[in-house]
Design a protein around this nucleic acid. Structure first.
Lengths: 340, 340
DNA sequence: GCGCTGGATTGAATCGTCTAAATCAGCGGT
DNA sequence: ACCGCTGATTTAGACGATTCAATCCAGCGC
């Protein structure tokens, strides 16, 4: 009934537990005949390795925790998929955790992962200076920051230059003639959001005659985008922004819905640029312009860095890998492609 | 440096390991003064419980594996979120695994989960009769089927009546006057797909004068939906279906894109009904009609069933919970709401 | 026939935690 | 002064796999 242990396999096959373990871990040093006999017994008995025991003895697990803001956001599932690819090659399993941009949930997950003595953690931290996170690192769990640059250099990180992203969006909108632009995103305390805002701000300031208005949201999801959109649509036409730069595509999608509901045309009455270029952006009611980030690559690279860090802890030097985003212009911000 | 063990905490606090363990697990039987001293030492030393050792000793883990077809499909992330909610209440952590409707990947994940001696597994199985899956169950890992009915009754399951879903879609399209309908989905070997098809087929047959054409796809993703759409758009107008029922919303979204690309109007030239009613369906270029499934509820219920099964293994009787889907009609299948 | 070599196998210790049984200290009752 | 009791604490195995030093043995050269 209960799964047999290595010991029962040994008895059944008439060898010692050491030999069974060797068959499992270094088959080459076991005599072929013995090896086969053990293998047969394993199959016969339906033996399944106990990872917990293995883990205890080895001191380190084969699981990597990936903590992200929002698993429902395709950007993060793409990222997760990239991480998974690399993990698979190294016989590592990925545990996806959803922090929902909530520091409490994030902390909870980190605690669980540390208790599990995971191989390492990839995380988009709510606050990269979180003392809890650094305590965890100090206690020995390897951590790689994802979609976030490690300021101090005390950690590896993989990110995309969000300021550049913000500038790309700003430049595009300004060049399209917009003079009143809204930024929708939040919480502003989040580095990613702050950087995107900083990016577009710098562009706006350079232009001189452009007004940028910030609308902070609590969570970057469709619902909040819609809410912000309703608020903005309700503004008097004269002072209402003519373009919106949304902190991510979910916000942008919600925002777009609000425009439709309010009877405002996109891009004529309101141009929209999102962020992440998730797959659904292109399929939206009005195909969405968006700042594209190489999500899969972020995930792959992060896992590789983690792998490197653990495999060769001595020689390892923390690295900050930074990718460049690019702007994908679609109908939501391009009059020339507009249907009417 | 290395995380301290319970033993070091004991030494430091001047008590035995047993007492430390008791502080952790049954604080009430420890004298308040001692308890406090141990607690202080724990904080001071930064002790973190080793879940692997605990797990080994207890024989069962606190992790539940959730194996789904496609983590990038919002239907499944909603489902996962529901499962997570309930898991959280029971101090259980959920491990999300992506099978990508690939039996090999699925098997790989099941193997990993079994090695980890997880608390249990929730799975949308590619083939619910898979011998590997049943062997795993026989060896003692509790499994609950999700979005899939357990035929034999040898397992708990939570599902939505897909035949009803298919009938709802069929009825709606036929009543809207369509006489040539396409079904896009696959692989047809998947029960969910087969049932949805069976549902619409039965409705079609009852109507008598309606023709149903099936287009099988390998994977239910946006790309395949687009592909199928292109193929159908290329058919001569006379024989081309006037409506499409897609196996899920991702397919439908892709299909919709293909219609736009081919210059066909939705719903005038082609009505579309999707499945799952994911959040993005409402935000699509043409808001998508869809058969809604209570994803979160599926996840919550599944986790509850698993919990019940493990907590009270003796008295437990396997149950099949079946929810009913309902149809959400939006513009993609409704002329009256069409903009033109 | 002896000792040696080297490949194959064994045995025991170990990882960190939990728990049942044993021990201990203190105290009230007789 | 002693017994027995209660409540607090300690002790001593497990749990299952890994690993390394120790052992075993067959074969070989001399």
């Amino acid at each position: 009934m209960a799964t047999p242990s290595i010991k029962e396999v040994a008895q059944h096959a008439g060898v010692s537990v050491g030999t069974v373990s060797n068959v499992l871990n270094r088959p080459s040093i076991v005599a072929p005949a013995t090896r086969q006999r053990v293998l047969d017994t394993i199959r016969e008995l339906g033996f399944v390795r106990n990872e917990a025991a293995r883990h205890l003895r080895l001191g380190r697990g084969r699981t990597v925790g990936l903590v992200v803001f929002d698993v429902a956001n395709p950007f993060f599932t793409d990222l997760a998929e990239g991480a998974d690819e690399v993990a698979y090659e190294h016989d590592i399993v990925v545990m996806l955790c959803n922090s929902k941009t909530d520091p409490v949930r994030e902390g909870h997950h980190l605690g669980q992962l540390e208790q599990q003595r995971v191989f390492g953690i990839l995380i988009t931290p709510y606050d990269s200076a979180d003392p809890g996170l650094h305590a965890l690192v100090a206690r020995g769990t390897p951590v790689v920051l994802v979609d976030r640059t490690a300021d101090g250099g005390g950690l590896c990180s993989v990110s995309v230059d969000d300021q550049v992203g913000g500038r790309l969006a700003g430049k595009h909108l300004i060049e399209s003639g917009h003079r009143r632009i809204a930024f929708i995103g939040g919480p502003l305390g989040m580095q990613q959001v702050a950087d995107r805002l900083a990016g577009i701000t710098s562009t706006v300031e350079k232009a001189g005659d452009v007004e940028l208005q910030t609308f902070e949201v609590a969570v970057m999801g469709v619902a909040h985008g819609r809410e912000a959109g309703e608020k903005i649509a309700a503004l008097p036409r004269r002072s209402r922004p003519t373009a919106a730069f949304c902190g991510n595509d979910l916000l942008a999608l919600g925002f777009l819905q609000a425009m439709a509901a309010a009877g405002l045309q996109v891009p004529e009455d309101m141009a929209i640029v999102g962020y992440d270029d998730i797959g659904f952006a292109a399929a939206a009611a009005v195909p969405l312009s968006s700042v594209r980030q190489p999500a899969g690559q972020l995930g792959r690279t992060a896992m590789q860095l983690l792998q490197e860090e653990v495999e060769d802890a001595e020689r390892h030097r923390h690295r900050q890998v930074i990718f460049q985003p690019d702007l994908v212009v679609r109908q939501s911000s391009d009059y020339t492609r507009s249907s009417r």
